[in-house]
């Protein structure tokens, strides 16, 4: 079992997620990209802890999933508040605070 392959896939997923956060304009898609970054790390943890025959990486994954759920709750709350005020969830409308 080659651990590098798994980590490269995780790295690619992480980069896709990171790019998504940076260039997408829709708030929900940005949150999905954040989840993708978290899940890339989860993939890496599962692969590594399978490779090393350890349990601690799997435990980390459970914690990451729990935190991701909590973050999603906050994220959707903020998205709803944003939509109520601006009538859209386009991130470009978040332009009051600059410089």
């Amino acid at each position: 079992m080659d651990i590098n392959a798994y980590l490269i896939v995780a790295g690619i997923l992480f980069s896709i997620g990171g790019l998504g956060v940076l260039i997408r304009k829709n708030l929900i898609v940005v949150f999905m990209s954040l989840e993708l970054m978290f899940n890339a790390a989860n993939l890496g943890f599962v692969a590594v802890s399978g490779y090393l025959n350890l349990i601690s990486g799997d435990i980390f994954v459970i914690f990451v999933m729990v935190v991701a759920a909590a973050e999603a709750a906050i994220a959707l709350g903020i998205a709803i508040a944003f939509y109520r005020e601006k009538g859209t969830i386009n991130i470009d409308k978040a332009n009051e605070l600059k410089w």
Partner: peptide
């Protein structure tokens, strides 16, 4: 975004 970097870094430290 920062937290994602943090845990992805942890993956490599763990590896």
């Amino acid at each position: 975004f920062a937290s994602a970097f943090l845990i992805f870094g942890s993956v490599f430290i763990y590896a």
